[in-house]
């Protein structure tokens, strides 16, 4: 007993002293991580003249600078259409990936067929294939089919490139579902699609939530695919903002609120579903 206190005593003391330094250090790190985003928010809420004449941090001395003027101008300039394009691209691309990947993952996990393992290894190999490889060939393909520039083309591209990770994640989750649950249904003679829809799919909700939030963030935040395949009337927010970058200095009253609007929905989703986000991360790193 006294031995243990002797051992612990000094360690505690050091811990307490070092603890204070550690707290301060980590608070500084946290501030360091928050300040850039805070800067964007404040800049988006200050008038152009204020941004040109003084740093955003002067806001804390003069809070009266706050104004929604930039947001008003941005929405009046037609930015809202690119917001809806982002939604129209992201929602179908997320739902399609979930549906298509869940079906494939079900086959990989619960149906025996020749070549199953080899095919799954192909899926794993495709995990790391860079999108650059498909940009030129798919542009040609879309041109030939007549969907170049359309929202459908962008959606299909995101679905295809989301599949390897989605199949990988869901297959691993499905494989962990107890065999008895499926076999009981199979004994009852339930058709395969019904087992999929009523037994496996509902059980997999956490994995599907992880996948859903990942795919949503990827598609919502994508710039490159939209840059190549979406024409101006179908462009999402990222592409619309990118086209303003050339005049960064003078366009900050458009860029700052636009960038902030584009990140607010992912941020809300992220805070609401962070548990699933972390689970998905743990299950699927390596992409």
């Amino acid at each position: 007993m006294s031995d243990a206190t002797f051992q612990r005593g000094p360690a505690r003391l050091i811990d307490r002293f070092g603890g204070g330094v550690l707290q301060v250090l980590l608070i500084l790190v946290a501030i360091f991580w928050l300040v850039p985003t805070l800067g964007l928010l404040v800049v988006s809420l200050r008038a152009e003249a204020d941004n040109n004449s003084s740093g955003w941090w002067t806001l804390f001395a003069k809070p009266a600078q706050l104004t929604l003027e930039n947001y008003g101008n941005l929405l009046a300039s037609g930015f809202s259409s690119s917001f809806w394009n982002t939604v129209l691209i992201t929602v179908p691309a997320t739902l399609l990936v979930i549906g298509i990947a869940a079906m494939a993952a079900y086959a990989f996990a619960w149906i025996e067929f020749p070549g199953r393992d080899a095919l799954f290894l192909v899926v794993i190999a495709l995990l790391v294939v860079p999108v650059q490889i498909a940009l030129i060939p798919i542009a040609k393909l879309y041109g030939a089919v007549g969907i170049f520039g359309s929202i459908a083309g962008v959606v299909l591209f995101h679905v295809a490139f989301g599949l390897p990770f989605a199949i990988f994640l869901l297959r691993n989750f499905f494989a962990g579902i107890p065999r008895e649950l499926l076999e009981a249904s199979r004994m009852d003679g339930a058709p395969e699609w019904r087992i999929f829809a009523t037994v496996v799919f509902p059980l997999a909700k956490p994995a599907i939530a992880s996948l859903g939030i990942f795919q949503f963030l990827w598609v919502w935040n994508d710039l490159l695919v939209a840059l190549v395949y979406a024409d101006t009337e179908n462009q999402p927010m990222t592409k619309a903002l990118q086209s303003q970058m050339r005049q960064f200095g003078t366009n900050i009253d458009i860029l700052a609120p636009g960038a902030f609007l584009s990140l607010i929905i992912p941020l809300v989703l992220f805070f609401a579903f962070q548990r699933y986000f972390v689970q998905g991360l743990l299950a699927g790193s390596g992409k």
Binding site: W33, T37, L217, W220, N221, F260, S262, P266, F277
Partner: peptide
Amino acid sequence: MPMAVSLLA
């Protein structure tokens, strides 16, 4: 948090 933010933003 920055993981949720687009690389453009």
